[in-house]
Design a protein around this nucleic acid. Structure first.
Lengths: 195, 195, 195, 195
DNA sequence: TATGAATGAGCATTCATTCAT
DNA sequence: GATGAATGAATGCTCATTCAT
């Protein structure tokens, strides 16, 4: 989850690190990758230098945030394996992830962008956990058998359309996910694909 | 389709306009909004000044391209009303749009970004046509009744995940759309949404 | 001498390129590598962007200047081979180079710094020419036989001490070179070196 | 030698001061003026704050080091007055100074840079001592009569060319000094200077 | 007093847009 | 009209110095 908690930081440093992360979360959530470091610093009520003390580059800061989100989803996925209902387990993870995506433009962008190495690591972790959740649901016959783990990012992409302004309507991503879930539960019905 | 074709252009001007549009299409498709004007000009074998003569800003150029794409999809949607099978009509439009999205990063980004006024106009046109296609399918009982026109962009968003590198697999967006379509055909089955 | 004169530049572009080079020469001569790009642009009465249009980085600009200086000295060295007096030929090249060094802090710094590739090329050229000048003088018995081409930069380094402020006295570098030349003409007389 | 040893320091403070000086010596010797304060602190195994407690600015720290070096050379020069051979005395001081210069990029740079007041003081001290050494050698007729004390820095500048990478050859500065010394011993022979 | 986290002015570089040729 | 050189505001990052702990 965290990246350099190895050496314990001074109390004030840890507090500032959190302020920076919080500010960055907010700013990246609003503006995605085009967020500006000065804006993050201002929002954290901190000098730019402080931001850079904790994160060597803008991308590293964004990556830390993304890694954290992916780690949280991965944790959720692992926990889902204890849920008795295989479908509920699967759907629950998607709902959980969607909740995060719906509020975070940076995270949404990450579904389409080339991931940094440090993020990749956590995405892999998520991929593994999600793979198990998917496998179980497929084995139980409640999830369409042709679905792949790598389909998940695509299926979740639309969640972030919430950022389009003016919003169609605030919670519309819920209907989006509901539709996707319906499509996933049913056995493939669309028939042969074109081309 | 285009925005300032009102006054007829000299032959060579029209030719240049097309060159610019073609180049911009290619570059925006590859690089999305971060494409650079100089690159577009180079690709069009034209000076930057020429690009600016035809399109006052980068956003205007991108908008012209988007407007064109939306217009093409709108045309496809209008034509779909002649298709006897209401479901085929609906699905056909989505397949058509997906084909465009899958190859165009700029277009995909537009599903999430704030649309320019000039694009908005064409999106509205598309919205109207698509509304009819959707209404017909719902009236025929082949499309889930709670679906809204404004859900379409969200549902199509995932198509562009194809830009993520390394690609999961080249044609994966087809499976994505198939799943979505399955979710749309079935009557809502997921049950009450959380929260 | 020049770096990208391959494609002929527009008249105004060439003029600006010269302005930039002149300004850079002046600023680097005064401040060496710590000169600032904005200052160079201001001095050239040009936007920074123009500086960057002609030279991709600060180092490239400095390198172009250095390369030019080295090229000029190399040309002088080649011409010196036509001078009948082998000693005058040798001494003349040093006097010529010293004249440049005495007025140019950037050039002086380059005698100590790691040279960029593009400069290296011209230094090599100079090394070759200078090697011939030295060889001829040694063959004529007028230059101490143990001197190497690579000693030249060291011997010339002191010229730049002229930048030390307050100057000991404006033309003192002339006496410096005279002393060095005397040391070079005499057969080695100092006796065994310590250590 | 040092600048603020007036008031006696606590034992640990004095120890820290030495650690800082040692570290700074090493770092400035390697990197010259571009050395970073953090690097010096790290090398001294001390916080930056401690560095600043002992030396108010980076330049003050560098100056302290330079002052120390100049003081050592000055001491050497004073001692040289006891050497019976006036030439050996003179040459010996230069060899001693060269040894220091050859291993210290910061010191070498100081021969060209504007000296801080606190350094100036020690340079003056050196100037006085060196003046006597030079005067004696000139009186004895073993040193060219037109040489001035202020020529010394210029003559020694080349020593530092050893920092150029790749080094021409490790001990080449010895030949440089030998040549200079030969030039200095001989009566002026070069003839009238140009211009 | 020592520490090292915080600060923020400073600087190289980019790129959409303008305008002289 | 076309060209591409010029512009300069904007932005990520550095590092000497300060100051809270």
């Amino acid at each position: 989850m965290a990246t350099q908690e190895a050496r314990p930081l001074r109390a004030d440093a840890r507090r500032n690190r959190e302020r920076v992360l919080d500010a960055a979360r907010a700013v990246f959530a609003d503006s995605g990758h085009e967020a500006q470091m000065d804006e993050i610093a201002r929002r954290a009520a901190v000098g730019v230098g402080t931001v850079y003390r904790h994160f060597p580059t803008k991308d590293a800061l964004l990556a830390a945030l993304l890694a954290d989100s992916f780690a949280r989803i991965a944790a959720n996925a692992r926990a889902a394996l204890d849920e008795p209902d295989a479908w509920q387990a699967f759907a629950g993870v998607l709902w959980f992830g969607a909740e995060l995506l719906a509020a975070n433009r940076g995270l949404t962008e990450s579904l389409v962008a080339q991931p940094a190495d440090c993020v990749l690591e956590h995405q892999l972790e998520l991929r593994v956990a999600m793979g198990k959740v998917i496998g179980r649901a497929q084995a139980a016959g409640v999830l369409r058998p042709d679905m792949l783990v790598d389909d998940v990012p695509m299926l979740m992409c639309g969640i972030g359309a919430a950022f389009r302004k003016p919003h169609p309507c605030p919670g519309s991503w819920r209907r989006h996910l509901a539709i996707v879930l319906d499509g996933l539960r049913a056995p493939a019905a669309t028939g042969p694909l074109p081309d």
